[in-house]
Design a protein around this nucleic acid. Sequence first.
DNA 1: ATATAAATTTAGGTTAGTCTAAAAATAGTT
DNA 2: AACTATTTTTAGACTAACCTAAATTTATAT
Lengths: 218, 218
Amino acid sequence: MITLTEENYIKSIYQLGRYGTLTVSTNSIAEALETKASSVTDMVKKLAEKGYANYKRYQGVSLTPQGKKIAADVVRKHRLWEAFLVEKLNFTWDEVHDIAEQLEHIKSEKLINELDKLLDYPTHDPHGDPIPDKNGDIKKTDKTLLFNLAENTKGVCVGVKDTSSSFLKYLDKHKIALGSEITVVSREDFDDSMVIEINNLKMSISQTVANNLFVKEG
Amino acid sequence: MITLTEENYIKSIYQLGRYGTLTVSTNSIAEALETKASSVTDMVKKLAEKGYANYKRYQGVSLTPQGKKIAADVVRKHRLWEAFLVEKLNFTWDEVHDIAEQLEHIKSEKLINELDKLLDYPTHDPHGDPIPDKNGDIKKTDKTLLFNLAENTKGVCVGVKDTSSSFLKYLDKHKIALGSEITVVSREDFDDSMVIEINNLKMSISQTVANNLFVKEG
DNA sequence: ATATAAATTTAGGTTAGTCTAAAAATAGTT
DNA sequence: AACTATTTTTAGACTAACCTAAATTTATAT
Ligand SMILES: [Mn+2]
Ligand SMILES: [Mn+2]
Ligand SMILES: [Mn+2]
Ligand SMILES: [Mn+2]
């Protein structure tokens, strides 16, 4: 039996460590989960005992294959639920995260498989993040930050890095959505802002915005 | 803030006490929640402190209006989720209860209202139990146990009392479903069994079955 | 290499929810 | 009314998950 809290720790280690490939520090977990480092130490010991994590004191944590599978399942559920809320229940992409944080812990194989089927086996969630398959595998796509595009190059918006409600609403307001085609018209060295063209309109965006939008080049 | 555990206790008090109208004993709650009477006493004190329950030692527990509203909301969510699983995700009526036990604790007004809309505002769950409305009100229907029907009277099956998987599967096997018309052909004094006609077939059912099927007479 | 700073762990406590065993109150029976 | 059985409560302990404060280890900078 795995508890909801354990699942959240494992998920954090997974996501902070690039889908379970890197070792993660105690403090980074504490920050992600809004808890204290001492609590993290306690939990990480337990996860190691249970076979979900590799841990040597002062050396950080990583996931075992078993831990990785658990994490991928939780992330799969989180993202499928987000897709469901947007596709079937009229939620907007800035409303779904907190509810998915709750729904990701519901235990039922059939439920998640039926949800997958109902949504016609989506590969990405409403924020453009990939949905792990039943085996926990993730299809890697070659996306880059808009900030990395040179002048006079084009890209299609495929995801957001910052998924905060305020950023998503900013994008909505300016009609920037997944699938939008964006051309970098010019870049400003002074403040790293850029002028882009989208929907046949030019607009200036800050460095912060450009650093939180994923595009597929070309 | 109300915890998942508190919600489960409140729901039990609600259901054992006929939708919050009766006082409930410590032992009955313990049995329903598969816990010990001493744990119930502790929790019931806390619920009283928080204003959800009325409690005097040795005298049993009842719900305050506030507690009743919380209970009705949880039951509403439980039953709407059960309906969703059957209507939209291909679950059978014997598979939904345990998952609904988890889903009933998800906190989101919008989620439950959208679910309600998606299902076109159902009044009953897959077992024939009424779904409380947003205000916590329940539409009372005049149903009776099949066991109470006299010989040569008819009824329409509108619900089950026992919602165990084994009973529901028994009903499936004999093609007894909500909406089925049932005629009591004869009753046997000896063992309280009865012969019924359903789908133009006669069959004998035990007293146990007759006492767990709700029908609407006539 | 030492000193200082930052990160991490340990020690000791708290709270929610549970349990067992014993005590107290209520209900049932002669 | 008195005894007995049942129900309920209290007392004391346990675990999971958290915290603060102090100790320890590792990293960084002279
Ligand atoms: Mn999310
Ligand atoms: Mn997402
Ligand atoms: Mn149910
Ligand atoms: Mn039901």
